[in-house]
Design a protein around this nucleic acid. Sequence first.
DNA 1: ACTTATACATTCACTGCTGTATGTATGTAA
DNA 2: TTACATACATACAGCAGTGAATGTATAAGT
Lengths: 204, 204
Amino acid sequence: MARRTKDDAEKTRKAIIDAAEQVFFAQGVSRSSLEQVARAAKVTRGAVYWHFKNKAELCDAMLKRIFLPQEDMLEKLAAESESPLEDLRSASIHALEMIARDKRRRRVVTILYLRCEYMEEMLGIIRRRNASKARMLSLSEKLFARAKALGRLSPCWDPRRASQALQAMMIGIVVNGLEIGKKSVFTNGASCIEVFFNSLQVRC
Amino acid sequence: MARRTKDDAEKTRKAIIDAAEQVFFAQGVSRSSLEQVARAAKVTRGAVYWHFKNKAELCDAMLKRIFLPQEDMLEKLAAESESPLEDLRSASIHALEMIARDKRRRRVVTILYLRCEYMEEMLGIIRRRNASKARMLSLSEKLFARAKALGRLSPCWDPRRASQALQAMMIGIVVNGLEIGKKSVFTNGASCIEVFFNSLQVRC
DNA sequence: ACTTATACATTCACTGCTGTATGTATGTAA
DNA sequence: TTACATACATACAGCAGTGAATGTATAAGT
């Protein structure tokens, strides 16, 4: 075959990334060769190297297609909410539902967490993750502080601890869900988050 | 050099595993060659292949030397406790302290979580992790049920949700701490666990 | 209609790593 | 003291994977 239209090229690019998702998920990133990815995408390594400089760049492209859980939450949240706890709760639940529902997202985040080794090549992704984690942490702290000001937060919890606890629970639910590999873990996790937020609202 | 005494051989073996920890941590497992490990241990690949069949077996040996966080907790817990919440709390805190304190454990668990790709070769380790996670989950559920029976558990929480929430928080704290790479995250996490257990004790 | 850039496929040279085979000096048991 | 096993070091073969170079057919621009 030879040159295709721009649309075709874009389809090829997509096919390569799709194939990379499958192969990386099945075998791990470093154990997968670009030859395997190419075969899965029904092209040759030539096409892969045309679209991507190397495996790291392909990885990058794959990760850029999805939202990380924290980014999901940030999308849904505004700092000046009038119902901060409710907003945080629904954003958390929503983020879990997103992963539970979207197979691609689950695959890619699984690759990110369990099927690749974070090294310098992955620096961009690490930064992105850390940045969204940090932003989410400070935003949720603000929202918990607002809840406290509104008298809605149990005196047990100060905003900082609450935001850290929420982040830990979310990360734990996601990682655990990916390790177990069953959607039910996310559902259970969502219930935990519900109860957690209930317990945040009452005095102790 | 030539043959050493058994003690010397054991020291060599230790040195190789120590070196593997350093190299794997610094570069990731699959990017590290056994040549690099050997150099770091000041031996040749010959020695490495004498003591270990291949990289996977070396990895296995490295992981067998440490306790996983869940195993730490299981060590400290008995199902027939008279103060189940207090026991769970202190076991959780203890597990976090163990990782915060022990550099080796932190390194190895970091390798396990962030510097290696779980594939078939790692099946033994995966099984071990899943087993201890499952045992820990069911044990903590029993303990929460006991707390409930003793009237110590807030009506917000049922034993199952509480045990899932605790497990999620613990995993999240550990993973987050390893990702951030600062001991303070574990300390903060311990505070979160404290507050979490406080909030478990009161009615809502 | 002609040219040029594009979107690949094919080929090749090079490298790094693995696993194994072989060498060797020493501990140890008889 | 011999004889063998042990604990390595050294040497070698082979492959798998990368990246670049080259080939090529077609789309797009003029």
